[in-house]
Amino acid sequence: MIAYTARRLGLSALVALGVVVLTFVIARLVPGDPAAGWAGPRASPEERARVREELGLDRPTHEQIIDYVGGVLRGDWGISVRTHRPVLDDLLSLLPNTLQLVLAGLLIGLLVGVPAGLLAARWHNRLPDVLVRSAAIVGASMPVFWLALLLQTFFAGQLRLLPVAGSWDADMLAQYPLAKVTGLPLVDALVTGNWPMLASVFDHLLLPALVVSAYPVAVIARLVRASVLDTLGETHIQMVRSLGFAERAVLGRFAVRLSWNPVLQLCALIFGYSLVNSFLVEAVFNYPGLGRYAANSATVLDVPAIVGVTLLVALLYIAANLIVDLVHAALDPRIRLR
């Protein structure tokens, strides 16, 4: 297990380094002279030359890369052209909101997707199966931003059940300030017993999280269904049946256990996918997170910010993959002992 962990860590570090280099390349793809963009349109040639030197653009590419990597490692992710603040500060202040949204979506995905997949497998090719399969196709093929608009219109606009946008009620926050414990507003409100804020954060989170969860629900349901159906023919399932377990227990207590690992492995992929899906959802709900930041930065070509978001999300995604693999190894004795 230790050897496995070490190997897996090394690989992740290597990939992370690769991503840093990739973002460097992306930053250099910007058409025109980066120094011109930095110095502004009215800058004189001398000013531009000075900026080039300042930014190190006059030096060989490999030195620039090493500098860039060093900067990233030291936490110097550049200054946002749009907000004029260090990119990393911007990102870290917005990350908890996005993380909360994605994790909520993932949680809903598991809570709904796993039972739905089991239901479909239990009634293979019968009505529940057909319904779950169709719903999964629909869930996976709906453009999230469109689903967001639909739900926003219906629940917030028509029924007025839930707030239209934002992450919490500003007046409420003034009245009941939120203590920072984990950084995730929902969790913080919960652990500090800040009930009014908890309700406000929850209300604001519900719709976006539901939208973000559409994809995880669909994919998890499909995967659970497929993997349970795969196992149903196996001897150990026959064996469990011959021990007198009812079909519900056969599926729910034995067969589904074999879906845990595939679902867990999928979780990293879904996490990454939902993370960027949440970008589109944030744009619709005007929810202050990484996505809104990325979208705003992209439209004004704020390169340090775009590169920063890419880097941060990729690192999160790499970390998620790493964690999933390690948990997987811990759960699955066949891997751990290899």
């Binding site: 690769g18 775009i306 990729a314």
Partner: peptide
């Protein structure tokens, strides 16, 4: 394969977004 790993380490929509942002 390590190169593909690097590309796959950035979720598709995000990598496309970053590239689309800097390309014309």
């Amino acid at each position: 394969m390590r190169v593909t790993d690097v590309f796959l380490a950035v979720p598709a929509l995000l990598l496309a977004l970053a590239l689309a942002a800097v390309l014309p």
